[in-house]
C-alpha cells in the first residue's frame, strides 16, 4: 500500500555553529499514524520538531506536508496547513487565564459562536472546568501541559506533534494522557517524543529511534525494546519496563 505521506522530510539537517544537531533525517509519516520518537538526550528530537513546525529554519534538506514544500514557510503558515505542536517546556500565555488561552487557540480556527462551543467542548474533555479562570502562570507544571495540549487539539490540526506530553504528570495523569492521545488519534496523525517507556508502550505502534541527529532504527515497540544497540545507547538496565 503506497499512500502519499502526510509528512515527510528528506536529508533534513540543522547545524548550530559546528554542531550538527540534526544530521540528515529521512522521515515519513502516513495519515492516521501514531508514531513515537525516542532517543538519548541531545539526539536532535526537539530540534527536528522545531524545524517541522517552523520555529527553526533548517540548514538544508526538504520538508513536505501533504505533498507541499514547506521548507521556507513561516510558522503561522505551517500551523494553518494543519500542524499543531506542544513544545517541551510549557509554552502558553502565562499572564492570561485558562479560558483566554483556549479562546485564543480556538479563535485561530473558528469564527463567532463556534469559538465558544469548541472551548466548552475541550474544557469538558480535559476536565479543566475548575481551573478555567485561573492564570495559567499560577498552575502546576502538569496542569499547564494539559492546557497546552488542549490548545493544540482545539485547533483541530491534521498532524499533532507532542514533545514530552507526560513530563510533570503523575502516573494516573499519564494514563489519562495516553488515553487522550489514542482517542484523538482517531481524527489526527500524531508524533510523540517521550522518555517514559511505560507511556510509550501504552500508545506506540511504530517507534523511531533518534541517535546523534540521525534515525538509528524504526520498528515495533517490542523489537525496539529488545534491540541491543537501543539498550546500550538509550534504555540502560531498566530495559524499557
Amino acid at each position: 500500500m503506497t499512500v502519499e505521506p502526510i509528512l515527510s522530510t528528506t536529508a533534513l539537517e540543522k547545524r548550530f555553529g559546528g554542531v550538527r544537531a540534526v544530521a540528515g533525517v529521512d522521515f515519513s509519516l502516513q495519515p492516521g499514524e501514531l508514531r513515537c520518537l525516542i532517543g538519548p538526550n541531545g539526539a536532535g528530537k526537539s530540534t527536528f520538531f522545531k524545524m517541522i513546525s517552523g520555529q527553526l529554519k533548517p540548514t538544508s534538506g526538504e520538508i513536505r506536508i501533504a505533498g507541499h514544500d514547506m521548507l521556507n514557510a513561516e510558522a503561522y503558515q505551517i500551523a494553518r496547513s494543519g500542524i499543531g505542536i506542544k513544545n517541551q517546556v510549557p509554552d502558553v500565555m502565562n499572564g492570561l487565564s485558562v479560558r483566554e488561552n483556549l479562546w485564543l487557540a480556538a479563535a485561530s480556527r473558528h469564527r463567532g459562536a463556534a469559538i465558544g462551543r469548541s472551548v466548552d467542548r475541550i474544557t469538558e474533555r480535559l476536565a479543566l472546568t475548575a481551573i478555567l479562570d485561573r492564570l495559567v502562570g499560577e498552575l502546576a507544571h502538569g496542569q499547564r501541559q494539559w492546557v497546552e495540549i488542549g490548545m493544540v487539539i482545539v485547533c483541530e490540526p491534521r498532524i499533532v506533534l507532542l514533545d514530552e506530553p507526560a513530563a510533570g504528570m503523575s502516573d494516573e495523569e499519564t494514563v489519562l494522557t495516553a488515553e487522550l492521545i489514542r482517542e484523538i488519534n482517531k481524527d489526527m496523525t500524531i508524533v510523540v517524543v517521550e522518555h517514559d517507556m511505560q507511556f510509550i508502550r501504552r500508545i506506540a505502534r511504530t517507534v523511531t529511534v533518534f541517535h546523534q541527529g540521525r534515525i538509528l532504527i524504526e520498528d515495533s515497540f517490542d523489537k525496539i525494546a529488545a534491540d541491543p544497540t537501543v539498550r546500550e545507547v538509550y534504555l540502560g538496565r531498566s530495559g524499557g519496563t
Binding site: 517552523g54 520555529q55 509554552d91 500565555m93 483566554e100 485564543l104 479563535a107 485561530s108
Partner: peptide, 24 residues
C-alpha cells in the same frame, strides 16, 4: 474584539500565537 484579544495574546507569547496560526 478578536483583534484586541489576539494582540494581548501576542504580548504574552508571540511564538505560541504564531504556532496557533496567527500572522503575528
Amino acid at each position: 474584539t478578536r483583534f484586541g484579544r489576539v494582540i494581548v495574546g501576542i504580548r504574552e507569547n508571540e511564538r505560541r500565537m504564531e504556532l496557533l496560526g496567527y500572522d503575528t
